[in-house]
């Protein structure tokens, strides 16, 4: 198996674990951890593709930078929501957030 395939498999497993976390956790911060893991898997995919399919195209590396930005933003906005929720309801448990159902 080539290094590319090994990296893709690792990324797939990271994505699956992240997906499990994002779906199964009841706490907002833990859900964000799951999303982070999924994004990490995506980043690993991009780096592996850049290295083994198009090492001459640096837009691949730039895309990873954009992904890192997305991760940081997801954290920042998530914590903003968590802070607002904690202020008004005293908890960030998502089971209790049924009024957002609309």
């Amino acid at each position: 198996m080539s290094v590319l395939v090994v990296s893709l498999i690792v990324a797939a497993v990271l994505f699956a674990i992240g997906l499990y976390g994002a779906l199964s956790q009841t706490n907002l911060v833990m859900i964000m951890m799951g999303v982070e893991l999924m994004l990490a898997g995506a980043m690993l995919n991009v780096v592996a593709f850049w290295r083994y399919l198009h090492p001459e195209a640096y837009s691949g590396q730039m895309f990873v930078l954009v992904l890192m930005t997305v991760m940081a933003l997801e954290m920042a906005v998530g914590f903003g929501v968590a802070t607002a929720r904690f202020r008004s309801r005293g908890s960030v448990e998502m089971e209790e957030a049924v009024e957002l159902r609309g």
């Binding site: 395939v5 893709l8 498999i9 797939a12 083994y52 001459e56």
Partner: peptide
């Protein structure tokens, strides 16, 4: 995702 990785038939770059 693992299936896609295994059976993707990636055209590996040589450079």
């Amino acid at each position: 995702a693992v299936g896609a990785a295994l059976f993707g038939g990636w055209p590996l770059a040589t450079e």
